[in-house]
Design a protein around this nucleic acid. Sequence first.
RNA 1: GGGCGAGUAGCCGAAUUGGUACAGGCGCAUGGCUUAGGACCAUGUCUCGCAAGAGGUGAGGGUUCGAGUCCCUCCUCGCCCACCA
Length: 838
Amino acid sequence: MAYDHTDIEKKAREKWAGLDLYSTDLLDASRELYYLLVEFPYPSGDLHIGHWYAFAVTDIYARLLRARGKNVLFPIGFDAFGLPAENAAIKNGVDPKEWTYTNMERMREQLATMGASFDWSKEVVTCDPEYYHWTQWLFVKLFEHKLAERKEAAVKWCPKDQTVLANEQVQDGCCERCGTPIEEKWLTQWFFKITDYAERLLDGLETLPWRNEIKDAQRAWIGKSEGAKLKFKVQGVSDKEIEVFTTRPDTVFGATYVVLAPEHPLLSDVGFTKSYMNGEEVEKYVKATTKKTERERSENKEKTGVKLEGVVAINPATKEEIPIFIADYVLASYGTGAVMAVPAHDERDFEFAQTVIASETRSDPQSFIKLVVEPDLVVVKSWGREWINGKEISLLDEIRAGRYPYTGNGTLVNSGEFTGRNSEEVKWDIVKAAGGEKTTQYRLRDWLVSRQRYWGCPIPIAYNPEGKPHAIPPEHLPWLLPTDVDFLPKADPPSAGTPSKSPLASSKELKERVTKIFGEDWTPEYDTLDTFVDSSWYFLRYLDPKDSHNFSDTAFMKKWLPIDRYSGGAEHTTMHLLYSRFFIKALYDLALVPVDEPYAERFNRGIILGPDGQKMSKSKGNVVNPDEFVQNYGADAVRIYLAFIGPYNEPGSYPWNLDGVAAMRKFLERIVRLAERAHDTAEVPEAIQQALARASVKVVDDGDRFKFNTAVAALMILTNELEAFPALPKKALKQLIVMLAPFAPHLTEHVWEKLGGKGSVHQQLWPAATLAAVEEREVVVQVNGKRRGSLALATSTSESDAVIAARIIPAVVAALGGKEPVRVVYVPGKVLNLVVPR
RNA sequence: GGGCGAGUAGCCGAAUUGGUACAGGCGCAUGGCUUAGGACCAUGUCUCGCAAGAGGUGAGGGUUCGAGUCCCUCCUCGCCCACCA
């Protein structure tokens, strides 16, 4: 029986299609329901190794679950809006829609060659009006409940893609998509109020059984910090005050100046700007910093800033007059965009005092360093010595001399009535005394969802003549993406208050549509939605993608949610995963979905490296093309290899071994040969039954843990064991084939037929594992923890009987050296340790 | 700089709760079969040792009858965040 994989795979797929094997009957509750989700792909055009790793391996689990009698929903679709389609349009003049749909067609065919058992009848395509109709409907719901709102804020801008980006989409100060250094702008944009849910997003993590890496990454991203808002009155301009956020209000007595971010709103407040004399210099600095990319701002270690001349703020604790600066080390987008500077107790403020203050005020920077917290002597004792400038000096002396910022807690000094108290203990009393209020800040920013791009879901909003946004009424949804549009991005970035330069602004049809519905002087929203909005709810739509009355079916949602297991990439931890958790929580509050966490389990898979152990990249020339291997060795060999390459339950990185797929091919060929010599014997020998049962249990356990590497190893061991039997019953071999079927769906279908199996191998139930209660197990006998022999003992053997048996072993007798054990440690079935005095 | 994770053979990796360290695969070696084979089969493959045995999971220490697994210090690598007040 030759193994012609091309022919075998083609025939197997035709057979499955004929039997309609993978359509899920959502109403069939006679079996246990299981919703297995894998992140849907972007239709980039070609299936690469990452796609195979994502879909083929998750498919193994879908098939395992079905074999175990579960009613499995394993859907697929396309995250089809997005920048690459539009960029292709700009570059090659093709219609983004055509580009996208052509790619999807190709990818459907390619996905089929994997042997993936997706239920295509529930396919979801986010750029179909039937889908984005409901994205828009959900947007309107959020808008009506003030969870979607327009506001002015410091936002990230990509000068190449000509669009704003969400905070999460900036990596290393660069645009996630194109790598261009991003700029910060102050703009009016649409936001989802994810910060309202910060606390609940944190709470929800407590009960989720996800791996800690994922939960910790989300916690870090949300970045909760407890602190206080304090108000610094501006002297001379009575109604102005500068509000700062600090996590260390206990150091307020040491605040010797205040710093505003260059984008701080006060700097565009006429009442305030006329209060200082060096307006020109300030404006120059502001302009210079806003021009800088975020990367330039953070890479430049040297701090810069300008003092506002002729105006001072009042420290609310000391009532002293202190200078005001602007400096770009203060972020406009965090806290209040202003900080109180305590150079004695904050490294950044200390550095600023050493450099900028020295040059800006012509006074001794030391006069700004006011010690208010002294390290407790206990602390100093344990780490109190440091080498500074090559000399060993008491750190306490350095701190007292103002030559070293001390950022820990300790005893307050120079702090009025609080002097002598513990800084941590009186922190909140100081807030009260200074007239401030306790607040919690989050690193998480509201989710910016507007994009100045064409190929996205149109935001279903129109503006009245006063510029107030109104939702497009439901009867006009889907709010279609116009086609009479010039995609080319406009050169100038938008600025606050100016009309949008988005591609949609060039559509006459869109404007006419708005005029017709709302009247003259009304204008459409020209921005489109971030594609992460599309993907925040797609898994709800899978339940009934053709429903034209609802975004999803309530009865189905009650049955099938939450998703049992979600398989995806680690790169989505702080983006998609966080966004969709927020989205579901918001919809839960609006009573639209029955659960407030979407995913019961989440598994982040790893990545496949090139054969050289480096990340695959065209420039390194180490890209592995899966098609080549599929052609030479078959899809099944590639599937098994990917399952075998490493544990799927942790986001490690695994180098592609050039001989690996060939090895799996050899394994499959051994299976074929094994099938050829199987007999119609009626009885399956006990030893074979046990080998089958061991594999059956192991594969199920490992599968549930997403450890397909050891599951494959178990099947290899089983194959080795079966090969050793001269007479192989077909019955036994069929069980091996059923267990191998999830991994190698095509070949096993072929072999199943050859063995005379009925129907499809994929309709067979998992072999019941009747592991004989093993009476005897090998027990290791140790003397003082050293292995001295072993015994085959029933698990029911008592400790004293075990000791008697052990004391007959010569090596044990020798090791005991005539001494009596003073202690015996006996773990039945595992170990017997005799402890003697040394 | 901060957070998280990981270091086991020539390579990828096994080792559910602390209980025989290195399963399975690759690679390599020897032999068989063969006109030949990069096919297939068999055997071997952590180190030292003829053997009995001893040592061995990045380094050092600790807890324990017993540590790859737990604790402390350090080193290296990876990922994420990064002037977040």
